[in-house]
Design a protein around this nucleic acid. Sequence first.
RNA 1: GGUGCCAUAGCUCAGUUGGUAGAGCAACGGACUGAAAAUCCGUGUGUCCCUGGUUCAAUUCCAGGUGGCACCA
Length: 300
Amino acid sequence: MKKTLIVVLGPTGVGKSKLSIKLAQYFRTEIISSDSRQVYSELSIGTAVPPEVDLQKVKHHLIHSHSVHDDYNASQFEKDVLAILDHLFREKDTAVMTGGSMLYIDAVCHGMDRLPDADPELRSRLIRDFNEKGIEHLRLQLKKLDPHYYSVADLKNPKRLLHAIEVCLITGKTYTSLRTNQKKERLFRIIKIGLNLERGELYERINRRVDQMIEEGLEQEARHVYPLRNLNSLNTVGYKELFAYFDGETDRDKAIELIRRNSRHYARRQLTWFRRDQDIAWFRPEQEKEIIHYVESKLT
RNA sequence: GGUGCCAUAGCUCAGUUGGUAGAGCAACGGACUGAAAAUCCGUGUGUCCCUGGUUCAAUUCCAGGUGGCACCA
């Protein structure tokens, strides 16, 4: 029998975790989190890690598996998930993956091209150059290293330019030549379940969840990691806004309002990304029966 | 009940010496291959409260109405 990965995706706060537990229980299997921030063990409240009771019900993978000090990325995630699945599929026919990190989901479903690991020293040098000389400097460098990518790149986006440059410098090849634009073959079947709500309803849920996080002690959690604020892992909604408050740049209410807004913006970006994926079957989060029925119809 | 002020975008407001309007915030659309909860690009979405009058033309002027606020009774 062909093994199956059931992917539950959707905007933040829509109710993915709850449904995933139901699915995992129904199919007697385990859950892999596809959330780029829940992997960090220092973060719980602000990343909406499921409560301990839920984690007890079903085994979860890649939650609190790393530290904010670790360099983690989508490619590493792809490798980690494939290893977990390899192990899991020896015993189970299905597995559930749930989370909203778009690139991470695609890394598992489509695969990432083989590129070199980032060299921390080179990266910080390039960042320093960018800060001192501006984006024009990055553009000129890229134009020399990879004229083709330069012609199609988003020339206003420093991260994109910088990454292409570092890949060229490390490999001695052009970034273009390493981008295959091909889906990787997977040995398992993938079923994508998308959860969504009417926009106003979703925003209400997001706003309410932020208030709940504050009640549960998000401020204290953020204060705990405040000294590490420069780590990329802490460039995260729910923390960066509170850091600004701790710095005295805004007041508390303003910071909380910004968390709400930035969470809404994040949800929108997620929906934009998912919209173009034709493989997703969309449901409302409470349609458990319909979803199970849909999955079973795909399994036969 | 009387007098005065106000009514313009989802919100707070600006403006048009009469030629159908614009800021901030919010909102909306898009991109995305190893930092992705990141990063970047784009978009005013409007019965200018209603009805009538004056006028070639009214969101703007006039009258009445409705609603809100303030003060006086």
